[in-house]
Design a protein around this nucleic acid. Structure first.
Lengths: 197, 197
DNA sequence: GGACTACTGTAACGATCATTATGATGAAAC
DNA sequence: GTTTCATCATAATGATCGTTACAGTAGTCC
């Protein structure tokens, strides 16, 4: 067993460091050396686990994608069978998600700014994030009795994106940022409206 | 007069090229050489106009900020004195804005991913974008008779951010993207609700 | 004990990239 | 006509950065 280090395996430490730094400073602005330093890992070990920086980026997004899915799953479990609560569970997950205090927006939309070529190994995870959100919200919207599940799903996703974008806006604008958006309440109203209409 | 070129002055061509490339491929991923090539400008000329790449980024964001403000102004003018239409004018401006067909989201939130240090000469324009949106929407919300102008402004800004985020989502997700969001109609409902409530 | 494994630290390599240097061109200003 | 100025094309410079190479160490397995 390769241990000896107090903070988990080298691979985990690399992904932890990559995630922290990529989210804070951006992917391109973060040198491999910075990741190695924070992870307390030597260069050879990084390249033993990943073919290159591109795949480290992909690994970071893959792990974050799975963590988000698990967080959302757990929030859904807590809702039991209440269809309305289940549609809104995405906002509970947003509060529960590790690094929920992040001052920057959606990590996948942020990565999409820097990873623009479909051949990039991380690109598939950008698509995976949107796919998960769209498909799951559509199912949940349908189960809640919405007449137009696609339209309700788009509204919920819009509120989700708005919540994350407002984090960035507050970060860059300081005091001049927007007021907090009551996403959950607005989403609940949307659910009711879509069932009534 | 220094002309001779069919596409405007060297400075304008530099900013045009920078804007196109930075929006398409990201700032860090775009080399100065690529900007020079598209602008048909020599390196010495670039550094005669800008102290460095950082200031070229700042110049690009400054010009885009002013263009957005002018587009919004024009949309407001067309609304005359109708307070409801004036709150919704931001969505008209979004349609009118040059490069409205952009497949990527808000250029300022995108730049905020890559420009994270407040000392960067472009940073102030990130803040300026949010300030303009927040302050102007707050004024317009108050003029529309909203009981809580800040809350209405936050909702409108949320719909604006949602509209731009969904562009990125559709780009990365292809067919699996979200349905189009009827932002203007949703915003109109929010305006009515805030006056009634 | 010896082979194996996961890892270390440091240094070098090679490519990329922002920036600077240089000398020349061509049109306007006086 | 000469000065001025914005511009050009090309090459060099210097720093950064991703990647590789190398020699060595500590613990596991048989």
């Amino acid at each position: 067993m390769p241990r000896a280090h107090a903070r988990g395996t080298a691979r985990d430490r690399l992904l932890d460091a990559a995630e922290e730094l990529f989210v804070e400073r951006g992917i391109a602005a973060t040198g491999v050396d910075a990741v190695l330093g924070r992870a307390e890992v030597s260069p050879a070990t990084l390249y033993a686990h990943f073919p290159g920086k591109d795949h480290l980026v992909a690994g970071y997004l893959e792990r974050r994608h799975e963590r988000w899915r698990a967080t959302w799953d757990a929030a859904l479990e807590r809702c039991g069978d209440d269809p309305d609560a289940r549609v809104l569970a995405i906002f509970d997950a947003l509060d529960d998600f590790p690094t929920a205090t992040s001052t920057r927006g959606c990590a996948f939309l942020a990565a999409a700014v820097e990873v623009t070529e479909p051949e990039h190994p991380a690109y598939r995870w950008l698509a995976a994030d949107t796919h998960l959100l769209v498909e799951r919200l559509r199912s949940l919207a349908a189960e809640s009795g919405a007449a137009e599940p696609d339209a309700l799903a788009a509204e919920i996703l819009g509120l989700y994106d708005a919540a994350l974008a407002s984090r960035t806006r507050r970060t860059v604008a300081g005091d001049g940022g927007p007021a907090a958006l009551p996403c959950r309440a607005l989403a609940a109203a949307a659910v009711a409206r879509h069932r009534a209409g």
